[in-house]
C-alpha cells in the first residue's frame, strides 16, 4: 500500500498531529515503506486461525461496587496547564452537543 500526501494529511488530522509540507514529504515514503513491509503478513494463510487480542486466555475480573477514591482535585490540578474554579480550561468548545 503506497500512501499519497493526501492520505498522510488525513491520517495526521485523525491523530491530531500537525504536518508541514516538509513533514509530509518525509513521512509519506517512510510510512509507505513501513506499510509495504507490514504487508508481508499477507503471505500467511490465517483462514483457520482465531485472532488473539490478549496473550492469556482469561476473562475480565469484576470489581466490587464501592467508592474507594477520595477528592484529590487540588493535587491533580497542581500539574494542569490551566484551571479555574476547579475546571480545566480549553479554548472555547464550539457548542454542538
Amino acid at each position: 500500500m503506497s500512501l499519497t500526501a493526501a492520505d498522510v494529511k488525513k491520517i495526521a488530522h485523525l491523530a491530531r498531529l500537525n504536518m508541514s509540507e516538509a513533514d509530509i514529504a518525509l513521512y509519506t515514503p517512510q510510512l509507505s515503506n513501513i506499510l509495504a513491509f507490514v504487508e508481508h503478513m499477507n503471505q500467511a494463510d490465517t483462514s483457520h486461525i482465531d485472532p488473539i487480542a490478549n496473550p492469556l486466555d482469561l476473562s475480565q475480573r469484576l470489581r466490587k461496587d464501592v467508592v474507594t477514591e477520595k477528592n484529590e482535585r487540588d493535587q491533580f490540578q497542581a500539574i494542569a496547564p490551566e484551571v479555574q474554579v476547579g475546571l480545566y480550561l480549553v479554548p472555547k468548545v464550539i457548542e454542538d452537543e
Binding site: R63, D65, V66, V67, T68, E69, N71, R73, F76, Q77, V85, G86, L87, Y88
Partner: peptide
Amino acid sequence: KSKLFSGASTAFGADPNTQ
C-alpha cells in the same frame, strides 16, 4: 455507587472535578 472502571463516586451535583 462507583464508576464503570474506577472507584470514584457517581453522586450527582458535586463540585467540579472532585469526583
